[in-house]
Nucleic acid binder design. Structure first.
Lengths: 295, 295
DNA sequence: CCGACCCATACGTTTTCGGTATGCCAATGG
DNA sequence: CCATTGGCATACCGAAAACGTATGGGTCGG
């Protein structure tokens, strides 16, 4: 069975005439007549009553017409929807983000996205450092806002910004009275550390920073997230060396101070699978760049 | 665009593999692969991600799949529905009936119909003597229960029963005390007459009955319906010579008595357009015969 | 490094479709 | 009563599309 036959059938039913329908379909009358008869023989019953002045639907024909025209509309809508999704004007975009960036970026990013791609369903998911790669690879998120960027052969990275490191401490810490903290003063102080990049602890930006200044800070605790780090800092367990934007989500009682002489920063990046070719990714990247610009 | 392509697409999407889908479709793998690529080029975007272990839908493919499978189901249901309507197991049957027959037949006919053709929507309409032909000819009713039968070249008639004539009179009429009324006693009595068959008054069954018995009854009134006739009879305007089943709908105060020596009767018939070939008509005829049998 | 698996491409064959010419039937009009 | 018109059906031919077989070219697993 062929959708062309159904299309022809609907045309004839609506025109109530083979000739008129043929004209509208830009084809000759005889082949249309043949197709209609083929459809009838396929169904095993006449769909039209042939009168001397055109064709008229039988009851069977009416039953078919209702479904066929709906099916045609659905099929057309299907290919239209596929095109729209491919073009990025419809569809779904799953955005993953690391929680440290939420306060700094989402309030600007989300309205920007809704304005740029109004037909697209947005879907946000918080990512942890340990699962973000897997979530990209298994496509449960399409793009990820990461800090720092992901390094993986299958994952494409676009750096959209950076955050300087700041020293996080309880407000009652002596350093809190300083406008900025010289690196040298950190010597020997306890550090609340985040997980280093997998399999290469020395590549951590914080580790590199300390090494370059020849500072040694004993690791008081290792925690998974920036927020856990801040909790321990607040509890007096040690200092945090954290991206500046983390202060937007910091609990009361924590203060951030610049590190004097330290220009190191940590990248903010948009990451996606190399084989995801959705145009939504480009659009998302543009929006994310706008949202990150004021930082 | 061809529904075959959509069918192939759905098969491949469900099998997640061209080869498997080809097997299920009983065709070779290469042409299926070609068709899928043609569909993709028609849409202008890839619908599948080709992996080393089969195919996987892209977002555009998912958008299409949802609509396409629904459209396929609808199209299949459409041809199925058309077949079912043609076979008489689904559809709609518009039944016209003359009101004289309603009390006598519908209580048995309707349950019989619902049992015989449960998938068919029934639709009942009362017919008047003057419009019943038109209602059949313009197909606003499919079958009609008539008394007497319709005679028309385009209309097919099946006699399913007959009703003897009875004399209808007010209960206070002297004849009401008789068990039956001899024809001779009607001489000169006023008659409430019904409309004669169009253009041939002498062919009326009542006229023929009176003529054969050489009785003359002056026509006190001509009315359109049996019920109107009974109203006038009750009002004392004259006698009615009416089909026996009319007494089932007679108002209080009217009695019916057999006409002695008169074996004349009036046909009950099922009528339909000659060019209506719905199998529902046969089924309806069977049911009507059953429903009329006890009369 | 080789075989297995799976999709893509190429080419010849067959089916199907569409166009033109024409026939048939009924209704209309002189 | 016959001719004309309008509409659908049939016949035949050329063109296009689809199918099958053979084959190529990747990747994965042993």
């Amino acid at each position: 069975m062929d959708i062309r036959r159904l299309r022809y059938f609907v045309a004839v039913a609506e025109a109530r005439s083979v000739g008129k329908a043929a004209e509208r379909l830009r084809m000759a009358q005889p082949p249309l007549s043949v197709q209609i008869r083929k459809l009838e023989s396929e169904i095993g019953a006449p769909l039209f009553r042939r009168g001397t002045r055109g064709m008229d639907l039988t009851e069977a024909g009416q039953a078919l017409l209702a479904r066929a025209s709906e099916a045609l509309a659905l099929a057309a809508d299907g290919i239209e929807a596929a095109r729209a999704v491919a073009a990025g004007s419809r569809g779904r975009l799953s955005v993953g983000y690391m929680f440290v960036l939420a306060n700094a970026m989402l309030p600007r990013l989300i309205p920007e996205l809704r304005r740029s791609i109004p037909g697209v369903d947005l879907d946000f998911a918080e990512l942890s450092a340990s699962t973000r790669e897997a979530r990209l690879l298994d496509r449960s998120v399409t793009v990820a806002l990461c800090m720092p960027a992901i390094h993986h052969p299958e994952i494409q990275v676009a750096r959209i910004g950076a955050q300087p490191f700041m020293l996080a401490m309880p407000i009652r810490s002596p350093f809190a009275r300083l406008g900025s903290v010289p690196m040298a003063r950190l010597q020997g102080r306890p550090l609340i550390a985040l997980p280093p990049p997998e399999r290469d602890p020395s590549s951590s930006a914080v580790a590199a920073l300390l090494r370059r200044h020849q500072i040694v800070m004993p690791i008081a605790s290792r925690v998974e997230t920036v927020h856990s780090a801040m909790s321990l800092v607040l509890a007096g367990e040690g200092f945090g060396i954290l991206p500046a934007c983390a202060r937007l989500g910091a609990p009361r009682g924590i203060v951030f101070r610049p590190l004097r002489d330290a220009t190191d920063s940590i990248d903010i990046a948009v990451c996606w699978r190399r084989d995801s070719h959705s145009p939504l990714i480009r659009t998302f990247l543009k929006c994310a760049e706008k949202a990150v610009a004021p930082l």
